[in-house]
Design a protein around this nucleic acid. Structure first.
Lengths: 174, 174
DNA sequence: TCCATTGTTCAATTGAAAATGAACAAATAT
DNA sequence: ATATTTGTTCATTTTCAATTGAACAATGGA
């Protein structure tokens, strides 16, 4: 790296304040992710990518949002897992990675369902199975009948969810 | 209130421990409400009602769950607002109110959509409208075109949500 | 090789939201 | 009237998850 680039590196870290418009769009996504029970930083990062025409690297995100590198790294990891951001091809400099948002609602919802909802549904069903066994081992009486009915109902809820979630995705396609 | 009843009141507050089965069902609902971004106490209260054949009053809930009266009161209010619990008729003693759970999935999901999702959707649309105005006041150039496209996209997301949510409820009915 | 750049991990800190508990209100019974 | 039961409110405390920041890889360039 030559002198010129080093100098650019030194004072090139302009604290590029977010415009009012950018801030408001980012806030919009912060609200959105809170509704989904995700950390605010994820909304900030996705919001910044959404409102920025150029793809951004981790350092850009850290500088523009004023968050820590750790937060940005973890947030980007979550967003990658969710399929909400993708790696842009135009890297070229070293191993630096640039990100851009996936802006297709269907993909976003699909990723959320797959990563956040399905795992919970699965572990819930395991717990249900365990509960059902406990009921079967109880002495048969009015109370165990009541419990059995409740567990049955939970089982039906679970089935409905597995039926409806893929449908939901389908209806978002077009 | 006579002496007998007073005495019953004194040692009638048996710390009725939750059975292992009851605890596990309650845990099940705690996990569930966390996924929806609601406080744990709401899951506990609904879970207790769900796993109890008799309808319960606020004091019963406080005693059996070992939570504060304030928590129970607020939790029950939320659950009433969500339409997840209803007041049982069989009160009779004073103004004491007994609760039982609504166990119809369709009702529960409907209440959640109406109380939690729709308000957010509405306030989001107001923000969007405001953002669109800001874009219209920008000097026309490549950047404002990009912004305009993004805001359009968010508008379409919102429309899709309003279309799909009622559909979701419908598919849970039977 | 060795230094600079880029990114991850994780223990410690912080902060936002939930729970507490005491004061208060409202209704009923005595 | 007065006391008791029942329930709500809200300022404080607690809790737990998100964030930080420093240490640690891993890669690439000089």
């Amino acid at each position: 790296m030559d002198l010129l680039m080093r100098m650019k590196g030194m004072d090139g870290e302009e604290e590029v304040e977010l415009s009012e418009f950018e801030s408001q769009v980012i806030d919009f996504f912060c609200d959105g992710v809170r509704l989904l029970g995700l950390p605010k930083s994820i909304g900030e990062i996705y919001g910044l990518l959404f409102v920025t025409q150029e793809s951004l690297a981790l350092d850009d995100i850290v500088e523009r949002l004023g968050i820590s590198k750790g937060s940005a790294s973890q947030g980007l990891k979550s967003l990658r897992d969710l399929g909400a951001v993708k790696v842009s091809g135009e890297s070229s400099v070293g191993r630096k990675v640039f990100y851009e948002p996936d802006v297709e609602l269907k993909q976003l919802v699909g990723g959320f369902i797959k990563e956040q909802v399905m795992p919970h549904l699965g572990s819930g069903e395991k717990k249900l199975e365990n509960l059902r066994k406990q009921v079967e081992e109880m002495p048969g009486n009015a109370k165990s009948d009541f419990y059995s009915g409740r567990i049955d109902r939970l089982g039906r809820w679970s089935k409905r969810a597995r039926f409806v979630l893929p449908l939901l995705q389908k209806f978002l396609s077009k």
